[in-house]
Design a binder for these strands. Structure first.
Lengths: 237, 237
DNA sequence: ACCTGAACACCGTTCAAGT
DNA sequence: ACCTGAACACCGTTCAAGT
């Protein structure tokens, strides 16, 4: 519980003065280790060997801190992702990068959908939407296509973050999934036939593969829009 | 600030004893009127003219209360939705029902993605996935298709909830969107060419139409999977 | 200018005491 | 059995006082 010494340098000045970068870095470490509920200004101040009020000299409030931490993770992920190559492959790599990042940092999946003004959102949008032109998607359809991809990625991310949050408290992932399957199979089979059919598949499915299958599904839809023109689904004539 | 009289009936017993239904109903009213931050056990107790501890006799905790409120809204929406007709139309109506519900009750969009054990999730899954068989989607692909639709709906819902939360505090929707457009156009046009192209469209777009365009995109992808078989996107042979 | 940490205004939740 | 509301153990945030 005692705070570690901040490097035993000369005593002229603390060599590691507080800065937004150091605060964000410490916040990320706490978030990864303890989850969202572990990040308090008191815990953060203790880890930085300072008073909780000091943090407010570098960060406006907790929301600002979470936004900065989320932006930092997304920046790292997307800067390490190839932007050349087949457009379809770039989209898949960007999407998978976000999926894996949220797998490692579940809190990113939560905050990404809760603060629409953060930089991370246009960054992901650029990564998913940029390749659309090269894919042959007409100008007027690009917004809809990019937004579908983005919202799907955000949906899965939020869901995975919620899963991680829950089975952080209650045992491991397998027992957590089993508890959901059990709940689903208790539902009335007359009213929920589809859910019953899917329940077993839920237990044995691979999150990452299924995520990619969804991306491929949307990509197939995008291809079909690009071919047929204006609307994705034409009413039967 | 004085609490309203609970109906001046005879004094044998309070005619309106506390119950989970009454608590959930009051919680929904507070959530709709004041937003998520307005729902506190003190505010809820005051509205129900009782002590805050009394609520715990009918509800396990705040998460349980929010789950019950979310389930209630989703139950209302989906029970009022047609289950017959063209399968594609059923999917669109279920999706639009969720979209509109989250538009009216933004907190539903938040809680739907934060509690994976709630009943509302399999309910929406049934509504979106049930019609897939009639659409001609092969058995082994139905899980991926339904999950893509569900995650897209959850993504948009979470995003819209976040928008509502922000522009509840800061003026109306138009100025909120304008502030996002302003932020996006300040980004480096070299690094974010796509975001720049989309920024103007963001201001003039219709949320509901765009939501439906995304559903249609995924439906087009589903059609294409059903036609071509196993994989959505075939590698060029 | 930056840091400190006590103080303030809240929360969710518990629990002895009432009916 | 159900309700009451004070008390407890936290929060985020502020701010006088220090350096």
């Amino acid at each position: 519980m005692t705070s570690r010494e901040p490097r035993p340098g000369k005593s002229e000045r603390r060599t590691d003065a507080l800065s937004k970068e150091r605060i964000v870095e410490a916040a990320i470490e706490i978030l990864d280790a303890e989850g969202e509920s572990g990040l308090t200004f008191r815990a953060l101040a203790a880890r930085l060997s300072t008073g909780s009020g000091a943090i407010y000299h570098h960060v406006a409030n907790k929301n600002d801190l979470l936004t900065a931490a989320t932006d930092e993770i997304v920046e790292r992920v997307l800067s390490g992702v190839a932007r050349y190559g087949q457009p379809r492959e770039v989209i898949r790599v960007v999407a998978l990068g976000m999926f894996d990042a949220i797998d490692v940092h579940p809190w990113v999946g939560t905050h990404l959908t809760s603060e629409p003004r953060q930089l991370a959102l246009p960054q992901v949008l650029e990564g998913l939407g940029g390749p659309l032109r090269a894919l042959g998607v007409p100008d007027h359809a690009q917004f809809d296509c990019a937004s579908a991809l983005l919202n799907y990625v955000l949906g899965v991310g939020g869901q995975n973050a919620a899963h991680a949050r829950v089975h952080a408290g209650v045992g491991d992932r397998a027992t957590f999934l089993a508890s959901i399957v059990a709940r689903w199979t208790q539902l009335d089979p007359e009213r929920y036939p589809f859910v019953h059919k899917m329940a077993t598949r839920l237990r044995e499915h691979d999150d990452r593969e299924q995520f990619l299958a969804g991306i491929d599904l949307i990509l197939a839809g995008i291809e079909s829009v690009s071919r047929t023109g204006e609307t994705a689904v034409l009413p039967d004539p």
